[in-house]
Computed example of a mutant assay.
Amino acid sequence: MYNVLLDDIRNARIPGGSPLRAAPVAERLGVSITPVREALRRLEKDRLISYESHHGATVIDLSDEALVEYYDVRAVVEGLGARLAAGRITAEQLAGLWAVHGSMVEDIAAGRRERLGELSRHLHLAIADIGGPAFLGEQARAIRNSYPVPQDASLWLDDNHVQRHIVDAHARILGAVEEGDGDTAERVMIEHVRLSAAYRIGERTGPLD
């Protein structure tokens, strides 16, 4: 039950700000209310939902300030992962990353957007795993799992930004890693991740320039 609700929240099938009541959830999923309540307690511990008196549980929706902090933390951790990966990546690992990037380029050309977000997540976390296999990859996952990005807020859906801000950035990161240039890999990764915060806030307040 916990995993079902966790997946729904992380994939924004239950978007931020949505009420999450035990009885309707139990009815929808065809289970008793007890495992749903236990799942909600675990989600609250994960800080994915919050409780308010007389309102019950609500899926967390970050403020602009918290959103910037979330992406800043991601940028630091994933940027460090890129820097470290540049110094320890193997030829086989590098080929795997370029293969993922190539699949994304092909999907974009074919107009297939539905799996781009997940492929991007895989690419970022793979770089973090290579850079910091003992701790860093796990921390990168924990940060990402702490807040789901709504699918309708993804840069992958925006034709004006997908090539310049994502595809080209991924290629530059991989190119720097391949060359062993940790400084550039880290800098481009940080800029790339922070752009997502600017985009998300721009979607709330107006178009991103």
Rank of each mutant, 00 (worst) to 15 (best):
L62G: 04
G87S: 10
A85H: 01
G111K: 00
Q93R: 09
G132S: 04
G87Q: 06
V149Q: 10
L116Y: 12
I127T: 02
Q93T: 10
L67G: 11
V100A: 09
L136N: 07
S154A: 15
W156G: 11
Q151R: 14
E138C: 04
S63C: 08
H124W: 06
G131M: 07
Y71G: 02
Y71L: 11
P148H: 07
G137R: 08
A66E: 13
H122N: 11
Y71T: 08
I108G: 05
H124Q: 01
H161F: 15
S146Y: 09
L119G: 09
A128H: 00
H122L: 15
A86T: 04
A142Q: 02
G87I: 04
V77A: 07
G117H: 09
Q93A: 13
V105R: 14
E69H: 10
S154D: 05
L80N: 01
L116Q: 07
A86R: 05
L116M: 08
S120I: 10
I130Y: 07
V59E: 05
E78S: 03
I143M: 01
R88W: 02
R83Q: 02
P150S: 08
V59R: 07
S103H: 15
L62I: 06
V77F: 13
A128S: 01
Y71Q: 12
R144Y: 08
Y147T: 12
A85T: 08
G117E: 06
I127C: 01
P150Q: 11
A99Q: 06
G137W: 12
L84E: 00
Q93D: 05
I60G: 04
I127Y: 00
L136M: 07
H161T: 13
L67S: 10
L84Q: 02
V59M: 09
A142M: 13
H161I: 14
R74A: 04
H122Y: 14
L80C: 06
A75D: 10
V76A: 13
S154C: 14
L67F: 07
E106L: 15
D159F: 09
D152T: 13
V73Q: 10
V76R: 10
V149N: 04
D64N: 15
L94K: 05
R115C: 11
G131V: 00
L97Q: 06
L80F: 12
D107G: 03
N160D: 13
R144K: 01
I130D: 02
R74W: 10
A95L: 07
S103W: 13
Y70M: 11
S146E: 04
R121F: 14
L125Q: 04
V105S: 12
L155Q: 02
I130L: 06
D72E: 15
Q151E: 09
A99R: 03
I108A: 11
V76P: 00
A128Q: 02
D158R: 13
E114N: 14
L157P: 03
P150N: 12
L136R: 08
D64W: 06
E118G: 11
H122C: 10
R113P: 12
S120K: 03
H124M: 03
Q151A: 14
R88I: 08
A82V: 01
A99H: 05
D107R: 11
I89Q: 00
S154W: 15
L123I: 12
L136Y: 07
R112K: 09
R121H: 12
V149S: 05
E138P: 04
T90C: 03
D158N: 10
A128Y: 00
G137M: 01
E92F: 15
T90A: 02
V73P: 03
S63W: 12
L136K: 11
D64E: 14
P133Y: 09
E78Y: 01
A95W: 00
